[in-house]
Computed example of a mutant assay.
Amino acid sequence: MNQIKGIRILAVDDEPNILQFLELGLINEGFEVQTAPDGMTAINLAKSFKPHVAILDVMMPGMDGFEACKLLKKTENVAVIMLTARDEVDDRVKGLLLGADDYMAKPFSFEELLARIHARVRNQFPLLSGQAVFGPISIDDRRKEISLSGRVLELSPTEYELLKYMVINHGIVLSKALILDKVWGYDFGGDENIVEVYIRSLREKLGDKEHQLIRTLRGAGYRIDLP
């Protein structure tokens, strides 16, 4: 399986043997790994470690995996894989409703866990490998270039970051406020109408005269639709 360098994984379980098994196995695969024996420790650790993937045991003393999942999803950009000793539908549904991205029942295959980790990373962090393709659009984050059907677009640094953010989140409606926060930063003090100016420029450079690629949803924001 192809490895992607720099993936940070937070493993959380109150059983020391399982935690050690996960830590040693994941480090051996080339991941950066931190461990926590309970949910509260995991929440505090995530603030500084910034994991790409969190593997959460459901049944833990104090803060259980469900609550930890809920809080992690509120504060971190992280993919969550939940582990449980019970393969019960109710537990699986509850975890998914709280934001979990995947679910595995104990005992589990380490190879399957690896496959699921890589699947989550490819889905949620496509640019960790430096390059990613979304339909006719390709992004090379190392060269800071975006191409449309093989043609490299002439973009300013802000246009690059805006288009990259929108393409990665294609199919999702993005409000002006959210775009400002993610692209310009939460401390940006300017007018949110600057988003309209940059969207107009991107449409020109993409040849999107009919607004079929970058769609405007009145009162809601913008959405990129890819074929």
Rank of each mutant, 00 (worst) to 15 (best):
D140G: 05
Q20H: 10
M166H: 10
E196K: 14
L72K: 07
G190M: 10
E111K: 15
K176D: 12
H52K: 11
L26Q: 01
S147P: 03
N2T: 13
F134R: 11
E29V: 05
D57W: 01
L155Q: 02
Q3E: 10
L127K: 08
V167S: 03
I137W: 12
L162E: 00
V183L: 00
D13T: 07
D102T: 00
A100D: 02
G150F: 08
L202R: 03
A132Q: 00
G65R: 01
A79T: 13
E88P: 01
Y186D: 06
N2Q: 12
K74D: 10
D13W: 03
F108A: 02
I179G: 04
E210M: 09
E154H: 04
I7W: 00
M60D: 08
T158C: 08
L24M: 12
P126F: 06
I214P: 05
N2C: 09
L19K: 10
G221D: 10
D191N: 15
N17L: 09
G30F: 09
E161K: 13
E23L: 12
E88V: 05
G221W: 12
D225G: 05
I18R: 05
L22G: 10
V183N: 00
S147Q: 11
N193R: 15
G39M: 07
D64A: 05
V58K: 07
A79D: 11
K47I: 04
F110L: 14
R151C: 11
K74R: 13
C69R: 00
L26G: 02
L26E: 03
K164M: 01
I117N: 13
Y186L: 05
L127N: 06
G95V: 00
N44C: 09
V12P: 09
I179P: 03
G6V: 04
E204Q: 13
G185Y: 03
L178S: 04
D64L: 05
A220K: 11
D208S: 08
V167H: 01
P126K: 02
S175K: 11
R151G: 04
E154W: 01
